[in-house]
Design a protein around this nucleic acid. Structure first.
Lengths: 155, 155
DNA sequence: GTATTACCTAGTAATTCACTTGGTAATTAG
DNA sequence: CTAATTACCAAGTGAATTACTAGGTAATAC
C-alpha cells in the first residue's frame, strides 16, 4: 500500500466531485479553484481515475466530469490505487533469492499488514465519507447551515 | 498520514528486531543482511527511531539495538510517524485562506479519514503482528518449518 | 590497543511530485 | 460555419524524496 500526497489530492478531488456533482458535471477548473490544485495536475490525476472507470468525462461547453459509478461503489482504496499505481512491495521476487528465514518471515508479516490496510480502505466508500461528515455536521450545529440542501453547497 | 516504502523499510526492520532481539541486541549489519537494506540507510532510519525512543542502541562489540519498549507498546503508526515525519496535511492553514465552503469541507473529510487510518495503524502493535503470524503458521502447517510458502494474497 | 559496534555528515543518481507550457479533439452556443 | 468551451494529451522542470555510498567519530569489549 502506498499513501502519499498524490493520493490525498485524488481523494480530495473525488470528494469535491461527489459533493458538487449531483446535478450536472463538474469541470476540472472548478475543482482546481475549490481545492487549490493546479488544473494540469488534476488532468493527470483524472486520466488515471478515468482509466479505472472511477470518473467519466464529457467534453464541450457544459461538460466536465461525473463519477464513474455511485459514490457508494467507489472505495478510498480504489482511488488511491488508481493514482498511486500500487507498487507491489518486493515480496522476495517469487521466493527465489529470499534467504529462507527471517527475511521471508518479515515479508510475510508486512504483506499481511499491507493487505489489512488495503482492506480497511477498501471498506470506506466516498459515500460513507460524505454521509458520515454530513451527519456529524447536523449533530454539531444547526442543520440549516451549509450542506443540508439539495443543490450547490459550495457556498 | 503517509505510507511510503520508507515506512515499509522501518516496519520491516523493527519486525526483524522484534523477532531476533529476544536474547541480546541485534546489529544493524544483521538486519541489513537479513532484510537486504543498506547499512547506512538503516542507520538513518534508526536515528529517527531512536529519537522517538522506539529503539535503544548499545555501542561496542556485542552491541546493537534493542527495542526501546516492549513490542506491545510499539504501534505501527509510531514506527511510520518516526521515519515519515508526518507531514501535517495542509488543513487550510488555520482556515484563513480557505474559501469558506467546499474546500474546507473536503479538507475536513480528508482529515477525518486521515485520523481513521492513523487510529487503525495505532491499534496494531509489533507484538500483535508477530503473534498473529506465528499463530497462523502453527495452525496452517507444522510448527517446525521456519518459513514456508502458503499464502500469497495481498494483491 | 584494537576490533567492533553505534553514531554522524555530506553527497548523489534515480525517482517522484506538482506544476507549466503548448498543444489536439469533441461538443455547444451563436 | 465559427468561436468558445471543455476534456484530453505529451513533454519538460524545479524541488523534494528515496535509497544508497563514502568517510568519518565515539563508545565499549576483549
Amino acid at each position: 500500500m502506498r499513501l502519499s500526497t498524490k493520493g490525498r489530492y485524488a481523494v480530495t478531488a473525488m470528494l469535491d466531485l461527489a459533493l458538487n456533482g449531483k446535478n450536472g458535471p463538474v469541470t476540472l477548473a472548478e475543482i482546481s479553484e475549490n481545492q487549490g490544485i493546479s488544473l494540469s495536475y488534476l488532468e493527470q490525476l483524472f486520466a488515471a481515475l478515468r482509466n479505472k472507470d472511477l470518473v467519466r468525462g464529457v467534453r464541450g461547453p457544459g461538460g466536465g466530469y461525473y463519477l464513474g459509478k455511485s459514490a457508494d461503489e467507489i472505495s478510498i482504496a480504489n482511488i488511491i490505487c488508481a493514482v498511486d499505481e500500487w507498487v507491489e512491495f518486493t515480496r522476495c521476487g517469487g521466493r527465489q533469492n529470499c534467504s529462507g528465514g527471517a527475511r521471508c518471515l518479515t515479508h510475510t508479516l508486512w504483506d499481511d499488514l499491507s493487505s489489512e490496510i488495503f482492506n480497511f480502505l477498501a471498506n470506506i466508500s466516498l459515500g460513507d465519507l460524505v454521509r458520515r461528515n454530513l451527519g456529524k455536521k447536523e449533530e454539531e450545529e444547526s442543520p440549516l447551515s451549509v450542506v443540508g440542501d439539495s443543490n450547490s453547497q459550495a457556498a
